[in-house]
Nucleic acid binder design. Structure first.
Lengths: 338, 338
DNA sequence: ATGAAAGCGCTAACAA
DNA sequence: TTGTTAGCGCTTTCAT
């Protein structure tokens, strides 16, 4: 209304223009000062950076990302359920390694998978999307491909053009487990599975069945759980009740194995490993705890993440390269439960 | 060189302009079609959305965030070490609740805390930054305040203008633990602490000391660990060796309590709770596992996250409101280890 | 070496 | 109700 009223304008974020004015140079000079390998007088650069520091200026990454076509440095990470320790542990490594590549992880998922969230994040011009474990709605995959956003999948294989996957060789892992159980003298062996809608479970199950057959054995039972401790416990209760004769148990992941061991000891009067051998899958940190010392199949996280980063870099460098599937070899880790 | 060579231009992301042209409307009409509560002919909106869907268009969130001053919907989350289950569990809830608010979480930290990462993320015009646990470099706090970025701190209290905190009432928690140990008939009680550089440990320690004094008891020992299972185990080994007479142990978090219980049973021939009571802190999911059934002090995650979201919303609505500190009341959860 | 100017894709104030 | 216009803050030719 009247010019006497100074607008109580909240001091906006310092921009390159502010720095330019204060330093007596052009906006472009400021931009150059923050970019390696650009023509700019050595002294001038120093003085600009000084002024910028005084003012508390830092380039707006949003504006930069908008400008740089196809290099927003934003990477969406759709994590599996963080209640699964494997997912939590691998997420930490993933975040760390993405930063090494200069990427910023936008993390979604972690519990109940909200499909709208993962579609919503596509609103950002992502450099890539990482799908960790879990069931990935097909629609999401379609949208990513339509938007030409590179997809790196881990924990399952998605053999499609433009999608790279890295996944444990689950069948081999199951074979190793059966081999170890047989070597321990077990013959009446059962499988305690995870969520049947996930390929990891299907592959481990198939590997188990095949290895048993190869060993001339018939599975005593094939159960399914949900990859959780509680699920493992309740399924193990039924399993040990209905089939008290079993002497070996291969579980689809470590959490279920721990649940099963708890039930065996507390409710079924079965000592592990004396009267029952149990082998898990993944080798989460807890499995290494001396008090637990779970025999398991290592699903190597460091190697998995390394390969994911390798695939990511390769695809970013050449978006049209053929899609790749990398299988990580598992390893049997002998501890105290078999 | 010659116009006969069609440039092998990688099809760019579909923009509002593309949709506008195809639909025969203006760019603004397209923008309006995607914004609730704008003037736009019903039919026209439908047809625009139809064309957009055909083309696979979705508004570029970067451009939108650049435009909307102070509403990028980006929130940086600096998480504590995900090897601590408490941090993992709360991160999952945090991500979920932030999405409910329409915010996108950029997650950093999770393991080795890289200070440059947390400074680097300030390049984005964040709506807010969430600091979860751990030690927060002062420089980070300064930069945030300088940039006028709201800071929500959890797991410690940072009583400064513009910073809101929500934190468990650690002293009361320690009192509850001592009370429970005393009620269980324990008198020779020790404290197995976490990282002394963290306020959570200092408060729990202080609360322990005060409660012991109030009960007319003298602590047998005050040890320090690192909040990890392994750290708890090795400290407990020393503790039980040097002070075999102790009959009660209050641990600074659940992980250390589990480590201590493991050592007690496996190496020191002390049955829990028969000859040694152990109480943890946090009430992580594992503490509830029947096989573990850890008596502990609940550090309510749902309530913590709810309050964080409340503080966040309030600060976003009024950036100048006085900073607030919310203390979450702890609760003793009696299970099988005391 | 450096400034001017164009544009990245979007929203919002202003006209019509 | 709708189109035109002006930025948001930055990077990058293009001149100079």
């Amino acid at each position: 209304m009247s010019p006497s009223q100074p607008p109580p304008t909240r001091p906006h974020r310092v921009t390159a223009a502010d720095v330019a004015k204060k330093a007596g140079v052009s906006r472009s000079a400021v931009s150059r000062a923050f970019t390696e390998g650009t023509y700019l007088d050595k002294e001038k650069r120093v003085s600009i950076l000084q002024v910028a520091a005084d003012l508390g200026y830092r380039p707006n990454a949003l504006a930069a990302g908008l400008q740089a076509q196809g290099r927003s440095n934003l990477v969406a990470v759709v994590t599996g359920d963080l209640a699964n320790h494997y997912d939590g542990e691998i997420l930490a490594k993933l975040i760390h390694r993405l930063r090494d590549l200069g990427k910023w992880p936008m993390v979604i998922g972690g519990g109940e998978m909200t499909e709208s969230d993962v579609l919503g994040v596509l609103g950002f011009p992502l450099d890539a999307m990482i799908l960790r474990g879990g069931s990935v709605p097909d629609q999401v995959v379609e949208e990513c491909l339509k938007l030409q956003i590179p997809l790196i999948v881990s924990g399952r294989v998605l053999d499609r053009p433009g999608v790279d996957s890295v996944c444990c060789d689950n069948e081999t892992g199951a074979e190793l487990a059966v081999g170890a159980l047989v070597a321990a003298g077990r013959r009446r062996i059962a499988y305690l599975g995870g969520r049947q809608d996930l390929t990891s479970d299907r592959e481990r199950r198939a590997g188990f069945v095949a290895a048993m057959a190869a060993a001339g054995l018939t599975p005593v039972a094939l159960f399914s759980g949900d990859y959780s401790f509680d699920g493992g416990a309740s399924q193990a209760r039924q399993l040990l009740t209905q089939h008290p004769q079993i002497d070996g148990l291969f579980c689809a992941n470590d959490a279920m194995a721990l649940g099963a061991i708890a039930i065996a000891g507390q409710e079924c009067d079965r000592k592990v490993p004396e009267s029952l051998s149990v082998i898990g899958f993944d080798d989460i940190a807890m499995a290494r705890w001396p008090a637990i010392a779970l025999s398991t199949i290592r699903n190597d996280m460091d190697e998995t993440v390394s390969q994911m980063m390798r695939l990511l870099s390769a695809r970013l460098a050449d978006p049209d390269s053929p899609s790749r599937v990398i299988r990580i070899p598992p390893e049997f880790i002998a501890r105290n439960t078999h």
